[in-house]
Computed example of a mutant assay.
Amino acid sequence: MKIAIAQLNPVVGDLTGNWGRLESLLAKEGAAADLVVCPELYLTGYPPLGLLAKPWFQQQLTALLGQLPVLSARYPEIGFLIGAPTPVSPEAGSGWYNSTLFYSGGKLLGVAHKNYLPATDLMDEAAYFQPGNGATVINFKGKRLGVVIGEDLWAAASVVGAKLEPSPLLVDLAPQADLVLNVAAYPFYDGWTEQLSGLCAAVAQRFRTSFLLVNQVGANEELIFAGESLLVSAEGTPLYVAPSFQETVNVVDLEATTPPGLSSRPSAQRAVYDALVLGLRDYARKTGFTKAILGLSGGIDSAVVSCLAAEALGPANVLALGMPSPYSSVGSVEDSRVLAKNLGIEFKVISI
């Protein structure tokens, strides 16, 4: 089976743009694949939060959910797995599930609803979604695919320790599956990649099943996503690691004898730098900004901000202002001028 690992960078709330990228994915990068896998809540972008309470957003989302069978029928040879909110049935109550839908040949072959909903200040899913119940295994082209959404992967209590432990849901699902698919939007923080990849390898080895993680990349709201999607063999050996902090689509063959490739991960310091650059770049791009003005004092803090801004937006799009007072040292202005020249950004002095 050939799988297109779609490590995508959606825009929260841009249903039209995210849909257009899905159409392009199926027509181009995913055309050679049997299965295309997108991240958690790709259609709305993660996290949609309060948009789910807006009637206009609900109407647009419902209309696009209705178009998914039509889109699938246009590509009958390709199955695709896409994350999206789905409405709770009237019999079960009201609200939305955090769901992943599996389409092939114009038909819905299966739906998974996220069970464990984080309730943190930045990812308060519990305030906007209803929890699902149980695991989902889908038969597709001779493979049993076990679908796990985001934090359903591990036991909630284990996140406080250094080692993540598989959740009861995963322990129940993995023995039934030839391939475990974890569609996710895991935010970046230092050290997280090592914890997560360790869990993926341990699960694959324990249950003798291949494991695929497809993670969102990009920056939305106050969250930054590193990507670093991962394919692990049934022996627990990494076969593919997607690049960090960049959108990428790669088709891997589960039956291939040659591993598709491992992207080198950045050092801890470099990862923080790349995360900050991506956060600034995506904030500007997704909100329509192209240029930035910042104060440059000659100190270390504004120097770091200037470096990040020049990298994220391009030197030609950054204006640095030196604003000396009668008590400022000559060196503070001259140091700022030298830094601006080295970075290639414009520098002006406005005395205060």
Results as ranks from 00 to 15, higher is better:
Ile5Gln: 02
Leu8Cys: 11
Pro10Phe: 09
Val11Pro: 10
Thr16Tyr: 12
Gly17Ile: 10
Arg21Ser: 11
Leu25Asn: 08
Asp34Met: 07
Asp34Ile: 00
Val37Thr: 00
Tyr46Ile: 05
Pro48Leu: 01
Lys54Glu: 14
Trp56Lys: 13
Phe57Ala: 08
Gln58Met: 09
Ala63Val: 04
Val70Ala: 13
Leu71Ile: 03
Ala84Met: 02
Ser94Ile: 08
Gly95Phe: 08
Asn98Ile: 07
Gly105Thr: 04
Gly105Leu: 04
Asp121Tyr: 09
Phe129Asn: 00
Gln130Ser: 14
Val137Trp: 05
Val137His: 05
Ile138Trp: 14
Glu151Gly: 08
Ala155Gln: 08
Val159Pro: 09
Leu181Gln: 06
Thr193Leu: 12
Phe207Tyr: 15
Ser210Trp: 05
Leu213Cys: 01
Gln216Phe: 10
Glu222Cys: 09
Val232His: 01
Gly236Cys: 07
Pro238Glu: 07
Leu239Ser: 02
Val249Ser: 06
Leu254Pro: 07
Leu262Gln: 12
Arg265Ser: 12
Arg270Phe: 14
Asp274Tyr: 03
Gly279Asn: 12
Arg281Tyr: 03
Tyr283Trp: 15
Ala292Tyr: 04
Leu296Arg: 00
Ile300His: 07
Asp301Ser: 10
Val318Arg: 00
Ser332Lys: 07
Asp335Val: 00
Asn342Ser: 11
Glu346Ser: 11
Ile352Val: 15
